[in-house]
Lab assay of single mutants.
Amino acid sequence: MQRVNMIMAESPGLITICLLGYLLSAECTVFLDHENANKILNRPKRYNSGKLEEFVQGNLERECMEEKCSFEEAREVFENTERTTEFWKQYVDGDQCESNPCLNGGSCKDDINSYECWCPFGFEGKNCELDVTCNIKNGRCEQFCKNSADNKVVCSCTEGYRLAENQKSCEPAVPFPCGRVSVSQTSKLTRAETVFPDVDYVNSTEAETILDNITQSTQSFNDFTRVVGGEDAKPGQFPWQVVLNGKVDAFCGGSIVNEKWIVTAAHCVETGVKITVVAGEHNIEETEHTEQKRNVIRIIPHHNYNAAINKYNHDIALLELDEPLVLNSYVTPICIADKEYTNIFLKFGSGYVSGWGRVFHKGRSALVLQYLRVPLVDRATCLRSTKFTIYNNMFCAGFHEGGRDSCQGDSGGPHVTEVEGTSFLTGIISWGEECAMKGKYGIYTKVSRYVNWIKEKTKLT
């Protein structure tokens, strides 16, 4: 034993070699072989497995989906700052455009905790909710729209109204504003409101030439003092309507412009014939205590009207009353817009006519005020429907199939267009061939041609 100890002390290297040989010859039971080890760690190889990531292109799944990435790591994937920024906006807080917040056709661009709407022409605001041009839906104005110097929408209202708090709607500024039905039992019968379409306001006024200088022999019209197929109006439903009495009662109609003036057809009036105007009328054979009678003290036909040349060209006249009318729910003026808007309103496509005229061709006159909704007829169809001249200051309205029309005794009465609950004068009943005849239409004086003249002559002093 002493000898062994001496050998170990003198030859430590020998001992180490012996131990190493023993270990190498022993069977290893701690580690699995290569094949079995792979069965336990069965993990798919990654895209760049075996390579240094710093030297390969980034992978979106590896960089940002398996674990949260930084902007720089995302930049490695896209290799483009702009594309990385677009991805980053949604990656950080989701897609803010998912709810489609942009209105009126706006395009949404996502941002971090926010979004941006790219608005089409005519709109602005956070969600493109603000109209900035009158060309689109009248700028959301209830009545009139004008573009300011910086191309912003400025709404306005006709006389007797003021802008509401929203700067879009119009509200009454006087007790009985024009064009409004205020009798409670008839307010439910107000005709369907007309909503502004998209309009090209630059070209809204037709490029028409008034044929002022045409000389033409007097034409022989049949029954051209021209509501057939209409309905009984309720008291106060058309408070701007008046009836004219002269040699015979209810020979023509008219509309209240203001307390002192009536507008009617020029062919209705004769110099030297006494005319009485009755406002607030409903049943011409009954006294309903809503009527107001006034005498006409002055007749002003349009300066281009000449019955000797043509009885229905420039067929418009103004009547001055001896005493002002007292405005109330049964006696209310009709609204008159400017030339541009009167023309736009007419193009809405349908209007209402009213009167006490004959209820059928050569038949009896109506006792109760009649009204009828009539569609506008395109000019080409209008011209083809008659052998008589249709001037540019006239328009056609009615039904091709016949059966409904204005008729004798309705002449001078109103053709009105309702705009968001307020009625505007767009025409004056003038003439036609018979009444409600198939293929024939009622012919009306186009008020847009005469609004400046009306307003100039009827100013209240």
Rank of each mutant, 00 (worst) to 15 (best):
E165V: 08
E323S: 14
D315M: 01
I429D: 06
Q185C: 11
P172T: 08
E79F: 11
K293Q: 10
I7W: 11
S350N: 14
N283R: 12
K274S: 05
V195P: 09
T16R: 07
S350F: 12
C170M: 01
N38A: 09
D212E: 08
V92S: 12
A149T: 12
K459I: 12
E66L: 09
G106N: 03
L41C: 10
Q2H: 03
I210M: 04
G349L: 06
Y22T: 05
M8E: 08
V174H: 07
L103D: 13
I429R: 14
F251H: 06
Y91N: 14
I299L: 07
I297F: 04
E10Y: 03
R75C: 13
W118E: 11
L369A: 14
Q167A: 11
D405T: 14
T426R: 00
G363T: 13
V228Q: 10
N36T: 06
G272M: 11
T85S: 06
M394F: 13
Y391A: 14
Q408E: 07
C141I: 00
C335R: 00
A265Q: 03
F31D: 08
I334K: 00
I136N: 08
Y201P: 07
V199H: 05
G402Y: 13
E27R: 03
V416I: 13
R180V: 04
I17F: 04
E66S: 11
K45D: 08
D405V: 04
R83D: 07
P120H: 10
E10W: 12
F31M: 14
V257H: 00
N222F: 12
W240A: 00
E53S: 08
Y91D: 07
V416R: 02
L20P: 02
I443H: 14
G21K: 02
W356S: 04
V419Y: 15
T190P: 09
A149F: 10
N295Q: 03
N135I: 15
G351V: 01
V273Y: 03
T381Q: 13
Y352F: 12
N343Q: 12
L325T: 01
N80W: 04
C141V: 00
V296G: 01
W261Q: 01
I299Q: 12
N36D: 10
C18S: 04
S385H: 15
T445D: 01
N147Y: 10
G363H: 13
G58E: 03
E54G: 11
D150H: 07
R75Q: 03
W453P: 00
G125A: 04
E35W: 04
E82G: 15
W118F: 11
K168N: 08
P414L: 14
K89T: 13
L32S: 10
D131A: 02
N258H: 03
R180I: 04
G21W: 09
G125Q: 03
D198Q: 08
F55K: 10
G357P: 14
N104I: 03
F360T: 14
G230I: 13
S406W: 12
N36F: 07
E401C: 08
L189Q: 05
V353D: 02
Q408L: 15
S107G: 09
I454V: 08
P175R: 08
G106W: 02
T445N: 06
Y341S: 14
N310R: 08
Q370E: 10
F345K: 01
Q57K: 05
Y450W: 01
Y450K: 01
R75H: 15
Q408R: 08
E208T: 13
I300A: 02
R62V: 10
V183S: 11
S187L: 06
L321M: 06
E231S: 05
H314N: 11
K168H: 11
V416H: 07
L32Q: 13
K274A: 05
V242E: 00
N295E: 05
S25H: 03
E285A: 09
C117E: 03
V353G: 02
G402M: 13
D212F: 10
P120W: 03
R62Y: 05
T422Y: 05
A173E: 09
I17P: 01
A26L: 03
P175G: 06
A380P: 13
D315Y: 01
I334E: 01
N5K: 13
V56G: 12
V227N: 12
A149K: 08
